[in-house]
Computed example of a mutant assay.
Amino acid sequence: MEKTMDQRPRIIVDGVRKDFLLRHTHSLKEAFVARIQRKNAAPTTFQALDGVSFEVGEGESVAVLGLNGSGKSTLLKLVSGVLEPDAGTVLTRGRVAGLIEVGAGFHPDLSGRENVYLNAAILGMNEAETDARFDDIVAFSEIGEFIDQKVKHYSSGMFVRLAFSVAIHVELDVLLVDEVLAVGDAPFREKCTKKIKELAEQGKTMLIVSHSLGMVKDLCDRGVVLRKGKKIFDGPVDEAIKALQG
């Protein structure tokens, strides 16, 4: 019997709002000077996301587009579970692997090898699964002889190669990618893009944040455009790029 694809969404973002407090002083001295000068030192609220709603279906590859400060990275952190919304709901179905920040989840005093096992465990893999994939992870990352060095001595490029390699070798259902492919040399970026395409062809669900419109058009069929924390467009990726540039 032919296996049918589950029609339930992999990601649901429903009426999500996220606020951050912006503090205008960082020390008692600054607060005192502000008071003497009669400046308002009280923190203010910045609304990063305001009532954003959309769904991502099984096997969809969706780009999240917007200018700096539009709320893209905040949205991915909410979907990954790193942040919680102040209002609304974020739901995911299946195992989620995310490349949200370069080196996030890495312990600087552990080696690359130890961090592979640590990150894999965070992403839900057990030791046996990591053992089975370890050689492939290291080979893809091109870290080679540095795998047993402490990661605090790694360059940002080495960080992202190892983090990306761990994430894509997890048995995942949803992949979140936030601009990490901007780090590293051109051949490695090309290899990463090829691997993401392979995952898409396997029916994995993806939510991708990138300023590279060429990569977005290559990887995604649909785009969600944010402007100052609000969703202004959701539709075909070519039209989403026009909405972004309009």
Score class of each variant (00 low, 15 high):
Asp14Tyr: 09
Lys242Cys: 15
Gly15Trp: 11
Asp6Leu: 04
Phe146Asn: 00
Arg23Lys: 14
Asp218Ile: 12
Ser70Trp: 08
Asp221Met: 14
Val90Gly: 05
Asn68Thr: 05
Asp14Thr: 05
Leu219Val: 03
Thr205Ala: 02
Gly51Leu: 06
Glu142Ile: 09
Ala167Lys: 07
Asn40Cys: 09
Gly246Arg: 13
Phe106Met: 07
Ile100Pro: 05
Asp109Tyr: 15
Glu239Gln: 15
Val96Pro: 02
Ala63Tyr: 11
Ile241Asn: 10
Arg23Phe: 15
Pro9Lys: 07
Asp173Trp: 02
Asp185Trp: 11
Gln7Tyr: 15
Val13Asp: 01
Leu99Met: 10
Gln47Phe: 10
Val170Ala: 12
Val237Ser: 10
Leu207Lys: 06
Asp6Thr: 08
Ala167Phe: 04
Arg133Gln: 11
Ala240Glu: 03
Glu179Met: 08
Glu145Cys: 09
Thr4Ser: 14
Gly124Val: 13
Lys228Arg: 13
Val82Asp: 01
Arg35Asp: 14
Arg8Ser: 08
Leu162Tyr: 08
Lys231Pro: 01
Gly124Asp: 10
Phe46Thr: 07
Glu171His: 10
Leu83Ala: 01
Val16Pro: 01
Ser212Trp: 11
Gly246Asn: 11
Gly184Ala: 03
Tyr154Arg: 01
Ile100His: 06
Ala42Gln: 14
Leu21Tyr: 15
Gly69Phe: 06
Thr89Leu: 15
Leu175Ala: 00
Glu198Val: 13
Ala240Thr: 06
Ala240Pro: 03
Lys231Glu: 01
Asp86Pro: 03
Thr92Asp: 02
Ala87Asn: 06
Pro43Trp: 02
Pro9Cys: 03
Arg222Met: 06
Gln7Pro: 15
Gly98Asn: 07
Pro43Tyr: 04
Phe164Cys: 11
Val64Tyr: 08
Ser53Phe: 08
Val16Ser: 00
Asp218Lys: 14
Lys77Gly: 03
Arg161Gly: 05
Lys197Asn: 15
Met215Ile: 12
Glu201Val: 14
Ser210Cys: 02
Ser27Leu: 01
Ala41Asn: 12
Gly103Ile: 01
Arg189Trp: 10
Asp185Gln: 10
Gly59Trp: 05
Ala87Arg: 11
Ile196Ser: 04
Ala243Leu: 02
Gly69Arg: 08
Asp185Lys: 12
Ile12Cys: 09
Lys197Asp: 13
Cys220Phe: 09
Ser111Pro: 05
Arg189Tyr: 09
Gly81Val: 04
Phe46Gly: 03
Ser155Glu: 01
Val177Ile: 11
Gln7Lys: 15
Arg93Ile: 06
Arg35Leu: 15
Asp50His: 12
Pro236Ala: 14
Pro85Thr: 00
Glu129Gln: 12
Leu22Thr: 13
Glu60Ala: 01
Lys3Cys: 09
Leu162His: 08
Gln245Arg: 15
Arg95Asp: 03
Gln245Pro: 14
Val62Pro: 08
